Structure formats: structure tokens, C-alpha cells
Simulated assay, not measured.
Amino acid sequence: MKPLRTVIKVVLALSIIACSITGAYATTLRVGYWTSGISLGFGAVLEAQKFFEKQGLQVQFIHFPDVNGPTTALASNAIDLAFGTSLAGALSLSQQGVPIRMIAATQMIDAQIVVLADSPIRAPSELRGKKIGMSPVGSGTTGVGTAVLDGNYGLKLADYRLVAGDEPRLAQFLLQKNVDAAVMRPTTVAQVPDSNQKLRVIATLSDQWKQMTRASTPPYIGVAVMRNEWLEQNPNDAAKVITAMREALAFGAANPAAVVAILRKAASMNDQGARFYSDHWTAMNTVSFKQTDVDTLKRTFEVFKAGGTLKGELPADLFYQKPYLDSEAGK
């Protein structure tokens, strides 16, 4: 009997260990973000400074070279959290019945319509029949860009040719005259050698949006989205996720030199581009989910819907403010 008791004790001990290991893996937060767009800098700082880990979270970062990668991964349950993910893509996922909740607005529009310095094009109204470089369809920037061209100038997608590419490629397209104009972030423009002499800004999407909506606030293009399963399995940790992101935001604002160093290493940015990104840190990044933010997101959905980018209605429970409110309250 004694050997049997020993075997039982060993089995029970192994079971406890197995359950502990399983529990650890179950609570791992799989985080995905797009590394060729606006979320790059914020993600690089989050990783380098280990803000999630400092909150006691086990985390696995997954990088996507394509703007639609994080939303696709959310849909297939390959990640639990995507931040800086395309607002248009996230809204579309929710309409398809994917079990997700939006927990924060994380990136604001910070893009310009740019042409070559010697281009005859002086205003967005002159883009009819032209080739315009933008991020791939599905990105928040392209959603806003196509919406303002339609809303302010009556330019439908059929009235110009949209040439898709990531931002470094768009800059290349423009310089090689493969497109007549491109929608790019100032950080990308700053990385073009002698950009002040070679390129000219004809409009900013933020100003164009305010003109179209008659609102004082710019739209969000990137949001933080979580799958319901992780939220349900880790109800006490969701606020820690928001706290980690808020601390990353504050760190970037207070430590511009550190942001430059991180971007040079993680993104192979040149000094000028990294400094420009650091200088624009608070113009691009945020972590907020107050009622005014939710109202802005709902308004953006209606604009996308009116422009044909999205259809239908949003799930009533899509906007989940509790983690953000708990984080603000220090819970």
C-alpha cells in the first residue's frame, strides 16, 4: 500500500504543477501590433521598457508587417490584445460578430497629403483623376483620407486611383513619381532626405476632418481591442493593461531621448526621423476612453458608414470603459 500511496502523492504533485503551468500559460497576454505604421513607436517603447511586465503580466509580443495583421489575428484568436490597430478594421470585426471589446483610443490622426515640391497640384480638390498613395484599405488613416476627400471635395474612390503601400514605400512611390500625391505621417516625411526641398504639404487630415465634421477634435485612427475570452478569464488584470499603456505614454512624453534611442534600435530609424517621432509623441499617441472619446469613435463610425467604408450598426457592448476607469481610479 505504501508504494501506491507514494505513487498517488507523486501524481497529485505533478497534477498541481501541471495546473500551475497551464494557468500561467492561460493568463499570458498575447499582444499584437503593426510595425510599419503609427503604432510602431508606442509598441517599441512598451516592449523595451517592459511596462506590461512591471504590472505583473506575462506577455508575448507578436509583430505584424501589414496594417490588417492585428485585426486578422484577433479574428482567429491568435492574439488577445491589439493596440494602435486600425479603427476601421476593429469596427468591421465587431460587426462580423468577433468576440472583442474596445478598451481604449490609442492613436490620433497625424497624417498629411503630400506632393512633390514642383508639382502643379496645390489643393486636394485637384486630385481628381490622379494616383494617390495611401496605407492599404482597412487602415484608419485611409478610412479618414477617403472620407475627407469625399466629404470636402466630392471625390469618390472611382475618381482617383488609390495606390496602397506601407509608408516608406509610399515615400518612395512619390519621389519616383509613381503617384501624384501620398498620405503620410510627418514622421515619414521627415525621414526623406532634404524633405523641405523635395516635398510639399497641401493639407493635413486633422484639419480636413474638422472642416468636414465641424468638430473641434481630430478623429482616432488606432484603438486598443481585446478578445472577450481574455477579459473574462482575467477580470482583475484588464486595468493593469491600461495602466501599463498609460505609463508608456507618460514615459515617452517625459523621456524623448530614450524614445529616440529605442526607435533607432527597434525600427532602424535615422536620427532625424527618430527625433521627429519623439517630438510628435503626444500628437500621435494617447490612452484614453472617457465618454467624449467614445462619442468621437461613434461619430467616426457614422462618417465611415456614410462614405461606404462600413455598413450596419455597432454592437451595443463594443465600447468597454471599465478597465480604463478602474485604471484611472487606481484599482
Score class of each variant (00 low, 15 high):
Ala244Trp: 01
Leu91Pro: 05
Phe83Gln: 13
Leu149His: 05
Asp295Glu: 07
Ala316Gly: 08
Gln191Arg: 11
Gln58Leu: 07
Gly84Ala: 03
Ala244Gln: 03
Arg128Phe: 04
Arg169Leu: 10
Ile103Leu: 02
Thr146Tyr: 03
Met284Gly: 15
Ile100Leu: 04
Val59Ala: 02
Leu4Ile: 15
Asp150His: 13
Thr204Ser: 07
Met102Asp: 13
Ala261Pro: 03
Pro219Gly: 03
Phe83Ile: 13
Val114Asn: 00
Phe319Gly: 11
Glu47His: 08
Ala73Cys: 07
Gln272Ser: 10
Ser20Gln: 11
Gly140Ala: 03
Ala88Gln: 14
Ala215Lys: 09
Tyr33Phe: 13
Asn178Gln: 12
Gly41Trp: 01
Met108Lys: 13
Leu170Arg: 03
Ala147Val: 11
Thr6Ser: 09
Val67Glu: 06
Thr282Ala: 06
Trp281Lys: 07
Leu74Pro: 11
Phe64Ser: 12
Gln96Ala: 14
Thr213Phe: 00
Ser20Ile: 13
Lys54Ser: 07
Asp317Met: 03
Gln60Pro: 01
Val192Leu: 00
Thr22Lys: 06
Thr309Glu: 08
Leu4Val: 14
Met245Ser: 09
Ser206Trp: 02
Ser125Asp: 12
Asn255Pro: 01
Glu53Trp: 00
Glu313Met: 04
Phe301Glu: 06
Tyr220Trp: 04
Ala117Asn: 11
Ala18Phe: 04
Ala123Asp: 14
Pro193Gln: 06
Ile132Ser: 02
Ala82Glu: 06
Pro193Ala: 08
Lys305Ser: 10
Tyr324Glu: 11
Glu328Leu: 15
Phe289Gln: 09
Asp317Val: 07
Leu116Asp: 09
Pro120Ser: 13
Leu318Val: 10
Val114Ser: 00
Asp293Gly: 04
Leu46Glu: 10
Asp180Ile: 05
Val144Asn: 00
Asn196Met: 08
Val225Arg: 05
Lys198Trp: 00
Thr35Trp: 03
Thr141Leu: 00
Arg5Lys: 11
Leu29Thr: 09
Leu91Asn: 07
Val192Thr: 10
Ala274Ser: 06
Thr71Tyr: 01
Val114Pro: 00
Met102Gln: 12
Gln95Val: 11
Ala105Gly: 11
Gly129Cys: 07
Leu170Ile: 06
Gln95His: 06
Arg185Gln: 14
Arg101Trp: 01
Ile132Glu: 01
Ser36Asn: 15
Thr187Gln: 05
Ala158Arg: 11
Glu302Tyr: 01
Gln211Val: 12
Lys210Ser: 04
Ser76Pro: 06
Glu247His: 08
Thr27Ile: 05
Pro99Leu: 05
Pro65Thr: 15
Gln60Phe: 02
Lys131Leu: 06
Ala44Met: 06
Tyr33Ser: 15
Met184His: 02
Phe289Thr: 12
Leu205Gly: 06
Phe42Asn: 07
Ala104Tyr: 03
Val137Lys: 09
Thr142Ala: 04
Asp180His: 02
Ser288Asn: 10
Gln321Tyr: 03
Ala18His: 05
Ile62Met: 07
Lys298Ile: 14
Ile242Gln: 07
Thr71Gln: 10
Ala244Arg: 02
Phe52Cys: 10
Glu126Tyr: 00
Leu170Gln: 03
Gly97Ala: 05
Leu74Gly: 12
Asp326Lys: 04
Trp209Met: 02
Thr296Gln: 11
Pro168Ala: 08
Leu29His: 02
Asp159Val: 11
Gly252Cys: 05
Arg5His: 09
Ser119His: 01
Met108Asp: 08
Ser15Ile: 12
Pro99Ala: 08
